[in-house]
């Protein structure tokens, strides 16, 4: 691989741009196609579009011989709303599982470096943070503050932007009230089924650490079963 092609690909990955590295197996020639490019004139246009949708890398046979398409989708990201006890366990576990993690909590007593050493921590309102770093289909959102003033906005944004996982802490009763507020805010009710509530896989989790495992399990399940999210 040409070194400049490798640095270009790494730049795309850092900027969360989907790209496909095309390798002609017969002579080793390579090129990079970005999802944002207009590749309609590309001889492989149809195949490239299909691969961007499925996220699957693979070998194809063309008139000119075998061609390998390596699909690079943005790394899955987890945005946790609430710098609470569950989050303290969830951050390191999610990082080990390969997720890029951000914790947002406007309550500065919770969002401290001491409680989240080395983490990407934003001690600000989700409304402000998401202005600069918007949610996308490659992002999971877990809202765990129990406070509608903090949780509601990012949950609604997550549904609107098609986040691959949307989880909300709270009992069934709390969740029913939440959906009432979302309906009043004009959100389409058909989106409500996308919310994982009560949050996490049903493994009988009791402690904050166990709930973190249940949440991470639900995120990985969503990541690996939704098409075009994980490469």
């Amino acid at each position: 691989m040409d070194f400049s092609l490798l640095t270009d690909l790494n730049k795309d990955r850092a900027a969360r741009r989907a790209a496909i590295l095309v390798t002609e197996m017969t002579d080793g020639r390579q090129r990079l196609v970005r999802k944002s490019d207009d590749f309609s004139a590309d001889p492989l246009a149809e195949e490239l579009a299909k691969r961007f949708r499925s996220g699957k890398s693979g070998m194809i046979t063309t008139e000119g011989g075998e061609v390998f398409l390596n699909v690079s989708l943005p790394a899955p990201r987890l945005v946790i709303i609430g710098a609470v006890h569950i989050s303290q366990a969830l951050v390191p576990m999610a990082e080990v599982a390969g997720l890029d993690v951000t914790v947002i909590d406007p309550r500065t007593a919770f969002a401290t470096e001491d409680r989240f050493p080395g983490s990407t921590l934003k001690a600000d309102w989700p409304e402000e943070v998401l202005k600069d770093t918007p949610l996308d289909a490659f992002t999971a959102v877990a809202a765990v503050t129990h406070d509608p003033k903090i949780d509601d906005f990012p949950l609604m944004e997550a549904l609107k932007t098609g986040c691959f996982y949307v989880g909300a802490l709270g009992s069934r009763k709390t969740h029913a009230k939440r959906l009432e507020r979302f309906t009043e805010a004009g959100l389409a009710p058909e989106l409500f089924d996308r919310i994982d509530a009560p949050i996490g896989l049903d493994i009988g989790a009791a402690s904050p650490e166990e709930i973190a495992v249940a949440v991470l399990g639900a995120i990985i399940k969503a990541l690996r079963t939704a098409p075009g999210v994980a490469a």
Binding site: A75, A94, G98, L99
Partner: peptide, 10 residues
């Protein structure tokens, strides 16, 4: 900061 910078996973 990304996950790869906060952990040792390459």
């Amino acid at each position: 900061m990304t996950a790869t910078e906060t952990t040792s996973i390459p």
